Computed example of a mutant assay.
Amino acid sequence: MTTPAEARALDADDPLRALRDRFMLPEGIIYLDGNSLGPLPRATMAAGRDMIERQWGERLIRSWDEGWMDSPARIGAKIAPLIGAAPDEVIVADSVSVNLFKLLVAALRHHPTRRTIVTEAGNFPTDLHIAEGAAACVPGGRVHAVAREALDDAIDDRTAIVLLTHVHYKTAERFDMAAWTARVQAAGALMCWDLSHSTGAVQVDLGAADLAVGCGYKFLNGGPGAPAFLFVAGRHQAKLTSPLSGWMGHAAPFGFEDAYRPGAGMERWRVGTPAMLAMQALESGVDLFADIDMADVAAKSARLFDMLAAAGDRAGLECVTPRDPARRGSHIAFRHPHARALIDRLIARGVIGDFRTPDIARFGLTPLFLSHAEVQRAGELIVETVAELAETAHAR
């Protein structure tokens, strides 16, 4: 395991070390759950006051013409470089679930004979649930969910769209994005990626992908329930239409026409009025990435992973996350028969991770605010806590 002195030396050479001061982090807490909810950026506090006191309090409805109305496209353009997209291919709106529904229904309606959504069994539940609901909205629609190793054989001439989560929410296993996109498109289907555990955590290049959704409250630090984003490749924007034809997606929302005409480009994927307090918080979180090299983020993530993996090995835990950095995201998952108790005891000691049923202890490794010294100390506490659990079980 890494020693405290070695961890301090790594921190001294860390190109991201100054970013820690941009977050509100409670004393005495080692926060290893930024993959579920990112911490509060300090800039969000000042921006929030401006939003409430000046933009809302003083400017009132005039603020819609002073930046509010353009915020979905503006923030989307800021997210675009983090996922390898063009600025006009990303828009911020709604939640991951709602955005996924829009894209899946649009894809099922796009082709006259292809009516199947292929996805991975064990994918994040909302993706599977939304896929079921989307398929039920289109005559002949169906969901074909199979194990990861069976995905290739499941894709055929009935497949309209393949939905995969780039980084698995439990294990952090990462798909080869370029290879799977090419495989799906060669079969004549559309490729849709869920980037919820990727964006802001690992280097992402959507490349030739068709569609994508992503989360704003995890690694983008947009706050609890932050708006999500969706991506539609430029070549598809005139061909696909959202099934949720809300007034903000209309070609002329203030023309107040009875009939719906979809807006141009990504504007057609908007639905209702953007929640500006939440949009402001997300924009503050996204702005943190303006001067960050994602290669530095990936390199630090790999170092933090190795430190915690070594602690898990010493504790006798089974690491279910791939050891190869190219095959994983930025969290690490261990299997333990009493994972719930392990997480509860660690939280009581100031190390916040999370539990995923039935036996996974999961720890987020967020390079923007975590120090090597913190992760080294967390590793020591994991080793001690696992040993205590073993002693308790033996005493029984």
Results as ranks from 00 to 15, higher is better:
residue 378 A to M: 09
residue 310 A to H: 05
residue 20 R to C: 08
residue 142 R to A: 13
residue 89 E to W: 04
residue 122 G to K: 09
residue 210 D to F: 05
residue 58 E to R: 13
residue 176 D to M: 11
residue 389 L to P: 03
residue 340 R to D: 14
residue 101 F to G: 00
residue 360 I to M: 07
residue 160 A to G: 10
residue 182 A to S: 14
residue 191 M to D: 01
residue 191 M to Y: 02
residue 50 D to K: 09
residue 229 F to R: 02
residue 190 L to I: 11
residue 132 E to L: 14
residue 367 P to R: 03
residue 362 R to P: 01
residue 112 P to K: 13
residue 303 R to N: 09
residue 136 A to G: 05
residue 188 G to K: 10
residue 126 T to N: 10
residue 190 L to H: 02
residue 381 L to P: 07
residue 334 F to K: 02
residue 225 G to F: 13
residue 334 F to C: 04
residue 309 A to I: 05
residue 286 V to R: 03
residue 64 W to K: 04
residue 174 R to E: 09
residue 325 P to A: 14
residue 274 P to D: 06
residue 26 P to T: 14
residue 388 E to C: 13
residue 332 I to K: 00
residue 247 W to F: 15
residue 95 S to R: 06
residue 78 K to D: 06
residue 329 G to L: 04
residue 237 Q to R: 11
residue 239 K to H: 14
residue 202 V to A: 06
residue 339 A to V: 07
residue 259 A to N: 10
residue 50 D to P: 00
residue 289 F to Q: 01
residue 272 G to I: 06
residue 373 A to Q: 06
residue 393 A to E: 15
residue 62 R to I: 08
residue 224 P to I: 12
residue 18 A to Y: 11
residue 296 D to V: 05
residue 293 D to Y: 10
residue 171 T to S: 08
residue 173 E to V: 07
residue 43 A to C: 14
residue 50 D to M: 09
residue 284 S to L: 06
residue 334 F to M: 06
residue 35 N to P: 06
residue 220 L to T: 04
residue 70 D to T: 10
residue 59 R to D: 10
residue 155 I to V: 15
residue 319 C to M: 14
residue 270 R to K: 15
residue 330 S to L: 08
residue 262 P to H: 08
residue 241 T to K: 11
residue 299 A to N: 08
residue 105 V to K: 00
residue 343 I to E: 00
residue 67 G to Y: 02
residue 153 D to E: 15
residue 97 S to K: 05
residue 185 Q to W: 10
residue 41 P to W: 02
residue 117 I to S: 01
residue 284 S to P: 03
residue 358 P to F: 07
residue 17 R to V: 08
residue 115 R to A: 07
residue 271 V to D: 11
residue 188 G to T: 11
residue 318 E to V: 15
residue 161 I to A: 04
residue 259 A to R: 12
residue 46 A to M: 13
residue 57 G to A: 09
